[in-house]
C-alpha cells in the first residue's frame, strides 16, 4: 500500500483498507488546497468501503479533480457504480 503525493497528484498504489483510511483522509485534506488536484488510481489493486467513502467525499467537494481510473476492471466497475468514477 502506498499513498504518495507528487505536487498536485495523489498516487494510490496497492491495496488500501481501513488501516490506511486516516492517512488517506489527511492526504486528501491537504490535496484540497492544490489547484487542479488529481488522484492516480491506475495501480490501485484493492480497496474497501472506508476508502470509497473518502474518495466520494473528496470528489463531491472538489469539482475540478481528475481521476485516473484503476487498470483493474472490477475496481473500475465498482468505483464507477459507486459514483467515484464517472461512467
Amino acid at each position: 500500500m502506498t499513498i504518495t503525493r507528487k505536487g498536485s497528484v495523489l498516487l494510490l498504489e496497492g491495496s488500501l483498507s481501513i488501516e490506511d483510511s486516516w492517512e488517506l483522509k489527511q492526504a486528501l485534506i491537504e490535496l484540497k488546497a492544490e489547484t487542479g488536484p488529481s488522484i492516480d488510481l491506475r495501480d490501485l489493486e484493492g480497496i474497501d468501503l472506508s476508502i470509497v467513502q473518502l474518495l466520494l467525499c473528496f470528489i463531491r467537494e472538489v469539482a475540478d479533480v481528475s481521476l485516473d481510473p484503476p487498470v483493474q476492471e472490477e475496481l473500475r466497475s465498482i468505483l464507477g457504480a459507486m459514483g467515484v468514477l464517472k461512467c
Partner: peptide
C-alpha cells in the same frame, strides 16, 4: 451518500 459529512468531519471507520 446523502449523509456523508464533509471530508474534515468524516470518520472513515
Amino acid at each position: 451518500s446523502e449523509s456523508l459529512p464533509s471530508l474534515e468531519e468524516l470518520d472513515p471507520e
